[in-house]
Write a protein that binds this DNA or RNA. Structure first.
Length: 277
DNA sequence: CGATCTACCTGATGGC
DNA sequence: TGCCATCAGGTAGATC
């Protein structure tokens, strides 16, 4: 479900609502959500710890504890982090409940159970979660120069959509935002990275940064199923700004061509065949 | 090594 | 109604 803009929205909500609170108790149901390490050590390391900060790396969230530990969260396709109070009805698929001091709860809800949480610390993060160390640049927090971006594009010929979604190259971009970025840049999803002109490289880089910022400004995208929710359970608004994603058969807002859907690496891709080249 | 497929899950939707 | 196929924001691991 969530890509960088959605995770960033939740991060900012967590900073206001959860940082400074202490975790009083931890409840875990099922075995899927806590699968690196044991439930017992997960609970033991979190209970009594105070949340002192939140970081986002690509689509990962890291909650810093006053014990030095890090609570790492990845929402994958259907995970939600929701603020609640104890008397609120418990949603189906609530797998982890952190009860906070002085008040409130943080709940992890995840119907498809692809998401996960685990506890690590700065000294062991690289071995506990090697994929975190291998993330590419973050277009929101650590934008690189367009020259370096161009070097990455030219380093290896790869189709542009695969390039944008490769977390080793750029952290945080997934199926929705890769389509929106490519449309904004006027480039096709299957264009090879090493065929771009200098002007196209600059346009693509600008589109990456702009689309991500705009999507954060609108608090992310919730699709028809409204699975993506922020910490307060509210939907995002960026879906109203989508130019191509989910708009098959509709007119391109830029050139009035017809948006098409293609299958790319087993997933839907939306693009305008007349203004993306 | 890289590229490509599959598995991991539940739930919503649409065709028959 | 119901049954079945397809699809959904992601990524790791197997298999070529």
């Amino acid at each position: 479900m969530p890509e960088l803009p959605e995770v960033e929205t939740i991060k900012r909500d967590l900073e206001r609502e959860v940082v400074g609170k202490r975790i009083k108790t931890v409840e875990v149901s099922g075995t899927r959500s806590i699968r690196r390490g044991t439930k017992k050590q997960f609970i033991g390391r979190l209970e009594g710890a105070k949340v002192t900060g939140v970081q986002r790396r690509g689509k990962y969230l890291l909650l810093k504890m006053d014990t030095g530990d890090l609570l790492v969260v990845h929402l994958r396709m259907s995970g939600q982090l929701l603020k609640a109070v104890a008397k609120d009805p418990v949603a189906k698929h609530t797998h982890v409940t952190l009860t906070l001091q002085p008040a409130g709860q943080l709940r992890f809800v995840d119907p498809r159970t692809f998401g996960e949480m685990f506890v690590s610390d700065p000294d062991h993060l690289a071995e506990d979660a090697p994929e975190l160390a291998e993330l590419g640049f973050d277009p929101l927090d650590e934008p690189i120069s367009w020259i370096d971006f161009g070097r990455k594009l030219l380093a290896k010929p790869v189709q542009l959509k695969a390039f944008l979604m490769d977390q080793h190259l750029i952290a945080g971009i997934g199926n929705i935002y890769s389509d929106e970025i490519l449309h904004a840049a006027g480039l096709r999803y299957d264009r090879m990275s090493d065929t771009l002109t200098t002007q196209e490289i600059r346009r693509l880089y600008r589109a990456v940064v702009e689309i991500v910022h705009e999507a954060v400004k609108h608090r992310g995208s919730s699709l028809a199923d409204e699975q993506y929710r922020d910490l307060f359970g509210r939907v995002g608004a960026y879906q109203n700004e989508h130019q191509v994603y989910g708009r098959e058969g509709l007119a391109c807002k830029r050139c009035r061509g017809t948006i098409e859907r293609a299958k790319y690496q087993g997933r839907s891709t939306f693009y305008c065949p007349s203004c993306q080249v």
